[in-house]
């Protein structure tokens, strides 16, 4: 029983990371049909913002030394700032271009951010000890769960609730949902496009920062490529969930986390290295089963 509980917690904590990542991608896709490949690099940037630039092997922790009540808003602001900046400098000029062009532009932007970090910090992974006491285990129903796992899950759920509230109850949220549903129509009805899009980017950047904080606490490492893997899974989750559907993205994020964890538990040792192959096969199967995602938003219905 406790073992099953342990697996449930493992799955939930991995799923929370994927869900937060997926939400960051889905928000922007919703308002401007942009698949933002720079999202993972935004995460890495947030992590490195805690360090002073240096190519030495040992990390010079800078902002990372701030107390939590200052550090968390600081990193969130960095994420939001970078994200909004990329909208102003780059993506604004790509409104109304085709999705492929925007996607490649976002990839190129991510490439620039990554190599910029590489120049400043070198490719060597750096270590940061952030709140290591969060690694201590707590007992829940007989299972010993690291506190960080619990915090990850709770944070993810809190963010999801807060975002739902924001989208459902505030004017901004209403505008954003309207924009996600039908951007042209929303604009005609008086939704200010630039403001909504900027807001979406700011939120998405903050989500990237949140994922970055959790990742860095969990791994203790700052690595240039650290956002990449989560971003890919998040990207897949967004599509499986139904592009443009925020609840869908979150659900699919948790689903992929659960599948990956369960595979690791049930597969025999020889097959375990093929774990991800099974996950990707499941992705293809899901897409064949529901080409528009599990939760298809109304706007995605093809008229043919």
């Amino acid at each position: 029983m406790t073992e099953i509980l342990q697996v449930v917690f493992d799955a939930l904590s991995l799923g929370s990371l994927y869900a937060l990542g997926a939400l960051g991608i889905a928000l922007i896709f919703g308002v401007m049909r942009l698949v933002n490949f720079a999202h993972g690099d935004t995460m890495a940037f947030c992590v490195f913002a805690m360090l002073w630039p240096s190519v030495d092997a040992a990390a010079i922790v800078f902002a990372g030394n701030l107390p939590a009540w200052l550090l968390i808003p600081f990193i969130l602001a960095v994420g939001a700032g970078l994200s909004v900046l990329s909208e102003i400098i780059v993506f604004r000029r790509f409104r109304n271009t085709n999705p492929a062009t925007m996607m490649i532009a976002s990839f190129a932007l991510g490439f620039v951010i990554r190599y910029f970090l590489l120049m400043l910090y070198s490719s060597r992974p750096k270590s940061i000890d952030l709140w290591s006491n969060l690694g201590l285990p707590v007992e829940i129903l007989g299972a010993r769960i690291p506190l960080l796992q619990v915090i990850t899950i709770v944070t993810a759920i809190a963010i999801l609730i807060a975002l739902t509230f924001f989208l459902k109850r505030t004017r901004f949220g209403l505008e954003m949902r309207a924009a996600a549903e039908n951007f042209t129509m929303a604009r005609m009805l008086g939704v200010r496009a630039n403001r909504v899009i900027m807001l979406a980017f700011a939120l998405s950047g903050m989500l990237a920062a949140a994922v970055a904080l959790i990742l860095v606490t969990q791994t203790g490492t700052a690595d240039i490529q650290m956002g990449g893997n989560i971003m890919l899974i998040a990207f897949i989750a967004t599509v499986i969930g139904g592009l443009g559907s925020l609840p869908g993205a979150v659900f699919a994020g948790f689903l992929i986390g659960a599948i990956a964890t369960v595979m690791q538990v049930v597969l025999p040792p020889e097959a375990r290295p093929f774990r991800d192959a099974f996950v990707y096969a499941a992705v293809i199967a899901t897409l064949i089963w529901r080409p528009n995602g599990i939760f298809m938003p109304k706007s995605a219905k093809q008229r043919v």
């Binding site: 073992e3 791994t219 375990r272």
Partner: peptide, 19 residues
């Protein structure tokens, strides 16, 4: 057991050791 360098979490692998 095995894991992958880029795995965000190796919780499942640790659970296996502990059990």
């Amino acid at each position: 057991d095995t894991f992958k360098n880029e795995d965000a979490s190796i919780a499942a692998q640790i659970t296996r050791i502990k059990s």
